[in-house]
């Protein structure tokens, strides 16, 4: 068992952001959360992380309501990697990752061998063991995301939530990061924009549209031209990609003839 959403409603400023969302996160798998901007992906992740209480419905962890657990208790089970973590603290990689041990330590307990093992293993998994002393503000975008993932792993969670972790990364770093997430032996829920990357790496996909869950299942069941047109308003061809037999989405232009013409004037450099 893992995380479950039961009829979740969430409102902000009188607008319904999540509307009766129910789903069961498959344990031990990587679930991709798809949907256009403003479809409620981040909100659902926040509810799963216990950062906000649903207006209606409930989130269950192992069959028991998340709301009944203490913050610290939740933090030992569920870790969140935000879309764009920032700090103005002059913090090092090691110090950032050590923050992940916070829920496992009391106000006065010392740094235990167990804490050290968790941090070492987290740094190893993301390949940052040799960059411990580097300062946060000297890191690249991809390195920062890996630090946040290492911090989350140091929490030793059973479920990991990631909010568009590949945003603002170049394609090599996107692939690196997704391969890293896929290797993790955890239940992962990841909001992601790129349909092809989602199809390549996720075991299951859930699609949100206007706060409603409109599709849920294996990538090849979910990613159909009809769904893409309905949710994104875009026509697309879906084929099986040659290298890995995963669904591959090709988008068709919004106006049929726009690609036949000369490209629109771009300032020459």
């Amino acid at each position: 068992m893992s995380l479950e959403a039961h009829g979740l409603d969430w409102r902000a400023g009188g607008r319904l952001i999540l509307d009766q969302v129910s789903l069961q996160v498959p344990p031990g798998e990587l679930m991709g959360l798809l949907g256009p901007n403003g479809s409620g992906k981040s909100t659902l992740l926040r509810l799963f992380a216990g950062l906000a209480r649903p207006a209606r419905g409930e989130v269950l962890l192992d069959g028991a309501p998340l709301a009944r657990r203490s913050r610290r208790d939740i933090a030992r089970r569920i870790a969140l990697v935000e879309q764009h973590a920032t700090t103005d603290t002059d913090i090092s990689v090691l110090e950032s990752v050590r923050l992940g041990r916070t829920p496992h330590r009391s106000a006065i307990s010392g740094w235990s061998a167990n804490d050290q093992r968790a941090v070492d293993s987290a740094l190893d998994q993301v390949g940052l063991a040799d960059k411990c002393a580097r300062r946060w503000h000297t890191l690249s975008g991809g390195e920062r995301q890996r630090v946040q993932i290492a911090r989350a792993l140091a929490q030793q969670p059973s479920e990991l939530l990631l909010d568009e972790p590949t945003n603002h990364l170049d394609i090599q770093h996107q692939l690196e990061l997704l391969e890293l997430v896929r290797r993790l032996p955890l239940t992962c829920v990841m909001a992601i924009h790129d349909l092809n990357l989602a199809a390549m790496f996720c075991d299951t996909l859930a699609v949100l549209d206007g706060g409603r869950l409109v599709a849920f299942g294996a990538p090849e069941e979910v990613l159909t031209p009809a769904l893409i047109e309905r949710v994104y308003g875009v026509r697309a061809l879906v084929s099986r990609s040659t290298p890995h037999r995963r669904p591959h989405v090709q988008y068709l232009p919004l106006t049929p003839s726009s690609l036949d013409q000369e490209p629109p004037c771009e300032p020459s450099t």
Partner: peptide, 11 residues
């Protein structure tokens, strides 16, 4: 260090 939300997810 990384904001209130992250502090909350750290328990």
């Amino acid at each position: 260090a990384f904001g209130e939300d992250l502090a909350a997810t750290l328990g």
